[in-house]
Design a protein around this nucleic acid. Structure first.
Length: 226
DNA sequence: TGATGATCATTA
DNA sequence: TAATGATCATCA
């Protein structure tokens, strides 16, 4: 997709994001000279990449906030007709090595979520992809009470990783932050540290925000059903 | 039905 | 290869 220069300030980023409100994905795609895929089965990341291109996100696939110079992460939120989030939101990879040295303060999760541009997108399956609209952007900072919950979740998860209790990792852990597989397929393996301190292979995992978290963020800043 | 676990495309 | 962008598909 056509590159757009990165925004030089949060104000500029927000102006760009606000100009997308109400636009249909087909309009954005055509303006960038690209086509709307027939469906998302083989283009799962397409909506996110489309708005990245529009807003001038610069980090690519690096483990960095999307707008590196601003320290702002872009997150689209797929929402239904009622504005309620439909899916969890990927945050970053779970560090399987060096888990014992990691702290919440220096974690990728905290770095990425410190400042986020949330962008709701229509995503109910009734609406054809091309006709789905972008919602109203929200430039947001991690709020202390939400951070406290995330921190507890993160520490619970990372303790298991540190101790090599990988079999106990489950998406059922965590109030707002959960761990799920994150890989091309279940045969992907990554090195980690076993309970005896030795090297073991396990499936790569990612941190995800439950829909309950993004629902709470949207609820606090927009008029939404409870 | 909703959530968990699995999967797909792209890029540096 | 391993990070990113996520949604799909199955089962409790």
């Amino acid at each position: 997709m056509a590159p757009v220069a990165p925004p030089e300030s949060e104000a500029e980023l927000l102006r760009r994001a606000e100009s997308l409100a109400g636009q249909r994905l087909a309009d954005l795609a055509h303006a960038l000279g690209t086509q709307v895929p027939a469906d998302l089965r083989r283009a799962k990341g397409w909506p996110g990449q489309l708005v990245e291109a529009w807003l001038g996100a610069s980090a690519g696939s690096l483990a960095e906030p999307d707008f590196r110079n601003l320290g702002v992460e872009l997150k689209t939120i797929p929402v239904g007709r009622d504005g309620d989030p439909l899916e969890s939101t990927y945050v970053c990879t779970v560090p399987l090595e060096g888990a014992c040295a990691a702290t919440w303060e220096n974690s990728w999760v905290r770095r990425k979520l410190a400042r986020v541009l949330w962008l709701p997108m229509e995503a109910d399956r009734e609406t054809p992809l091309a006709q789905r609209r972008v919602g109203a952007a929200l430039l947001w900072s991690l709020e202390p009470d939400l951070e406290a919950v995330l921190r507890t979740d993160w520490e619970e998860i990372m303790e298991l990783v540190c101790l090599g209790r990988l079999a106990e990792l489950s998406a059922r852990l965590g109030v707002y932050l959960q761990v799920r597989p994150k890989a091309a397929n279940a045969r992907s393996l990554r090195r980690s540290v076993g309970a005896d301190g030795g090297s073991v292979l396990t499936n790569p995992r990612g941190f995800y925000l439950r829909a309950a978290f993004t629902r709470e963020v949207l609820r606090r800043h927009y008029a939404l059903p409870p």
